[in-house]
Design a protein around this nucleic acid. Sequence first.
DNA 1: CCCTCTTGTTCAGTATTCTAACCATGCTTA
DNA 2: TAAGCATGGTTAGAATACTGAACAAGAGGG
Lengths: 182, 182
Amino acid sequence: MPKIGTRLRELRRRRNLGVREVALRSGISHSSISLIERDCMSPSIDTLSAILDALGTTLTGFFSDLNSTVPHSPFYEASEWVEIGKAQTISYRMLGMNYPNRQILMLHETYAVGADTGEPFSHSAQEAGTVLHGAVEVTVGDECRVLKTGDGYYFDSRMPHRFRNVANEPSTVLSAVTPPTY
Amino acid sequence: MPKIGTRLRELRRRRNLGVREVALRSGISHSSISLIERDCMSPSIDTLSAILDALGTTLTGFFSDLNSTVPHSPFYEASEWVEIGKAQTISYRMLGMNYPNRQILMLHETYAVGADTGEPFSHSAQEAGTVLHGAVEVTVGDECRVLKTGDGYYFDSRMPHRFRNVANEPSTVLSAVTPPTY
DNA sequence: CCCTCTTGTTCAGTATTCTAACCATGCTTA
DNA sequence: TAAGCATGGTTAGAATACTGAACAAGAGGG
C-alpha cells in the first residue's frame, strides 16, 4: 500500500509530460490521472496498466521498483508465524507477514502422515529448504529422493515439483521462496 | 493485461482455500473474489493488494511472476522506435514497445545542444549505455566524466545520475535499463 | 430421502472509480 | 493590461467495482 501516486508523478515528470499528454496516450481521462497521482483514488489494474503503458513501463517493472525503505523490526517470535494454507493434511506457516517489500517467502511446512502436495506444479521462482523432522520424498523434474532430518534442497521452481511425507509421523520442512510467489 | 484472475485462482487453490476463506482474511467480499478470478472485473490496486496479502504474496512478487510465454517477433524496424518523452530538448525513444513481459527498456536518446536531464534522480534498477554521436557529460554519484562516441557506462540506478550534452551539436545515446522502470 | 455443510455463482443495490466540462493559476506575447 | 495557452485541480454525473443475500450443485451422514 505504498504511495503509488507519488511514484507515478515522478515517472511522468521525468519524461516532461503533462497530465493531459499522458491522458491522451493512455486513453484515461486527465482528471483520473490527477486524482491517482495525488493518491485520492485507487486505480483498477486495467487503468494502471494503461497509464504505465503510456509511460513505457510495465506492471512488472513498476512493482519491482517498490523499494520502500520503511524501517521494520527484523525479529519475529515463534508465535508470529502465520498460517496461509488451510489447516488440513498440510500446514504452511509463513514468517514476517508484515515485513515491507518482502523478497523472500519463508515457510514452516507441516505434513501429516501420508500427506502429499499432489500433482507437480511449477511457478517462476527459486526455492530452497531443509527437513526439520521426519522424512519427505521430494520429486523435482524426473529426479526423486527421500530427504530426512538435516537434508536440504534447492531448485528453480519452474521445474515441476512435488512433496510427499513418507514417515509414519508428521514431517516438518522449512523452506524459502523468492520472489514470494508460491 | 494478462489473465490476473486465472493466476489468482491458482494461488488460492494451491493453498486449499475457499473463496469465502480468502474473503474473510482479506476483508474483500467473496463475490468480488469470484468475479475477479473469472476476469469479470478489474480490481483496484487496494483490493488486489488485500487479496494478495491474504495469500501471503505481494504486488511485487505477483507481478514479477508474469512470465507469459507469448511468442513475439524479435525484430523491430527503425521506424518502430516509440517516443516516450515529450519532443523538447531531449528525446527518448524506446524499442519493442509491444513486446510481452519486457525486462529491458532500450532507449535511443537525443540531446539538443546544451540539453541537461537536470538535477540528479535515482530509481532502483541497473543502467548501461553508449554514446553514438556527440559528447555527453555523465555524472554518477560524485564522479563526472565526458563520454564521446563509442564510450559507454554501466551503473546502479540507485546512484543519483545526470546527463548533459556538452557538444555544440545534438548528441545521441543508446541505453538499456532493467527492470524497465525509468 | 432429507438434512446440512461445503463449494462457487448470480444479482440487485451501494460505493467507488472514472469522465467531461469547468475553474484557477501562471507564463508568454502583444 | 489583456488575450492566449499552457499547467494541474475541482466537481456533477456516468460507468464500473464492490457488497450481501439468495441461489445452485455437490458431498457426506444419518
